[in-house]
Design a protein around this nucleic acid. Structure first.
Lengths: 145, 145
DNA sequence: GAAATATAAATCGCGCACGATCAAATCGCA
DNA sequence: TGCGATTTGATCGTGCGCGATTTATATTTC
């Protein structure tokens, strides 16, 4: 009948917002012993898949701008996880590379992954399906912005 | 065969993280003309549903602590959207109430809602189903933390 | 009814996000 | 070849999120 203003419980955007924060809260105590924040963990995941990427490439993968990444990467350099170096071919580009320490965290991170999967309470199939739906929505929205 | 470290594309947590940020980016230009950020919009949505809530109640609804809400609410008070007043019954409690201006934004917000629904590219049914799945996941995770 | 405990909000410090802007390097092309 | 346009990353300011702590008020317990 009457269209009422949606409550937060009705809003998909709030479901995503609060679920994302819940995930970060779940990760925090698991990553803290490794000296990592969640966004820093994402950078490592990206570099484990492909080392030596530029700031721009990392930004494309993670949907973050240099104004976010530059200070974040400096902190990661400070804690000895990565190195940052200007490319000799193109002096504009900064290559980000894993250190020994950054590479070594990979095996620790697999335990974290397992722990988070457990916490989700989903089967691999369910998780994959939900992830694909959320990703599809994200891509549809991102294409507009 | 071998279990490889998941890439960001495989991770449900990253799907949620990036989808949530994409949503915020979608909302930003729609809310900016109203002088609102996305979290401030969420506070208004909560208050439109039930005015005069305490900081604690808002925090429960939005899953935010007073260290986030207090400064946020002060900014909203500053911009004339809400009032903050100590309860006379319990001096610890701060009641948050909509001003005329805060109430008036409700009709504007419905246009924003429609615009975001459009951008999602989902049917009402699909949206509802996805929202319920994301919410269920969030609640399962939040129960552990 | 005084001391111990619990609860509500505020404060502080740090790490994201991001709009706006800037400096430097490279590219394009007349 | 030279000069404007583009690309890359950095810088700055503001607004969240949140762990840790503090202050003030209320409740419990003895």
């Amino acid at each position: 009948m009457t269209t009422r203003t949606p409550d937060t419980g009705d809003m998909l955007c709030f479901a995503l917002y609060s679920a994302s924060h819940a995930m970060t809260r779940l990760y925090r105590p698991l990553l803290a012993p490794l000296g990592l924040t969640y966004p820093q963990y994402l950078v490592l995941v990206s570099l484990w898949a492909q080392d030596g990427r530029s700031v721009r490439e990392l930004g494309e993968e993670l949907a973050l701008e240099s104004n976010t990444l530059t200070p974040l990467l400096k902190r990661m350099e400070e804690s000895g996880l990565i190195t940052r170096a200007r490319s000799s071919e193109d002096e504009r580009v900064v290559q980000v590379s894993l250190t020994e320490k950054g590479s070594a965290l990979r095996s620790e991170a697999e335990k974290v992954t397992a722990c988070v999967f457990e916490a989700s309470g989903l089967s691999l199939d369910e998780l994959g399906r939900l992830r694909n739906e959320v990703r599809a929505l994200r891509d549809r929205i991102a294409a507009l912005v």
